[in-house]
Design a protein around this nucleic acid. Structure first.
Lengths: 188, 188
DNA sequence: TGTACATCAGTGAACGCGCGTTCACTGATGTAC
DNA sequence: TGTACATCAGTGAACGCGCGTTCACTGATGTAC
């Protein structure tokens, strides 16, 4: 584990994901290129291919990292709240807040930019913990509901939060945090 | 108004929008190119520039046509229902149904593909009637609510429908029409 | 009714661009004996 | 402890691609006199 600037990188894969995320924030998902990521990493255009099968694999890596942040964000929001009902509501607000804070990343995670089959599969795996955080929050807030009703409720909560997030991120509406909480609260 | 195949098109602008929509359905918003639209219209790559300032303007034209169809779809759904409450619910289902039937068009209408200022402005104008159809349906179903409460309700209804539509279109979940109706119904 | 001419709506060749990816390669590293 | 050699992790030049857009142009149309 040397710290010298050797020919070999110690963790190019991790660096590329980190730099890719920075670049994604600057230019958006549509204009993010493999070459630009390599360029900023100070490495040849071909170097990323040592660590990622293709561009989609790098994108899936970035999105996967995004889902890690996202799951933590959702879990923390629910945990901080005083009651399960407040936890569910706060989690919804956190969902929308994440999208507003990270619009490009949010689009990459949920949008159609990642298309190859293996990349999509790894993306689905990365998204599971976030979905489970949502499931837990609904379960805690509605412990007596039967499975079918709870399933509907989960989807409804997810939909309001996701819809609000998309509409805001895509510039269709602009809402204050207070308004967001009220809209999210409609379902609680 | 001759029908001869003359040098001059009678309505190239309309043709380009129609063909652009076809092509959009086939290849998706990311891969839709001006040249491909011109090619299929049997016209040179430069011809569209007689009718549209640039690619974004054509995209806005296509999306605008999409919003016409969308507004009609929403209005009809609400009008067909027996009661205002059913109208609101059916309209939500129609919203999601439209997205499922026209995923590429839906993405173009609501996504970030159209970026230039003038194109975005024309897009916003084209979207107004659809939003108004939603407002009317909520107003009919909740006539006694005060303005603030109604505003929240409109946003909530919009969000559930939009979120569900996005999640389905982007392949995050797959739902039967019956399940969709149940999720939409959570808010009615 | 005929003609001159402005305008309209196309053509077709060419431009520069950055991209993802291929290829053959080379320098650095670690391990077996 | 030294050395041979496999493997790993990069380089750098080159490819073909289709794109949006520019440019100068030409054929068709319609209108004023």
């Amino acid at each position: 584990m040397s710290t010298s600037k050797s020919y070999h990188h110690s963790d190019l894969a991790g660096q590329l994901i980190k730099i890719g995320l920075d670049l994604l924030r600057e230019v958006g998902p549509a204009d993010l290129s493999l070459r630009a990521v390599a360029r900023r990493a100070g490495v040849s255009a071909m170097a990323p291919y040592r660590h990622f099968a293709d561009k989609d694999a790098l994108l899936a890596g970035i999105a996967g990292h995004g889902f890690d942040l996202f799951a933590k964000c959702l879990t923390d929001a629910a945990a901080r709240a005083a009651t399960p009902a407040a936890g569910l509501r706060d989690q919804g607000c956190a969902y929308v807040g994440f999208a507003i804070a990270e619009p490009a990343l949010f689009r990459l995670m949920f949008g159609p930019m990642i298309s190859s089959d293996p990349a999509q599969a790894s993306l689905a795996r990365a998204g599971a913990p976030s979905f489970m955080a949502l499931e837990r929050a609904v379960q805690a807030a509605h412990p007596t509901a039967d499975d079918a009703a709870r399933h509907i409720r989960i989807l409804a909560c997810w939909s309001v939060a996701h819809g609000l997030a998309c509409l805001i991120v895509d510039g269709k509406i602009a809402l204050s945090p207070d308004m967001i909480a009220q809209v999210i609260g409609t379902l609680s």
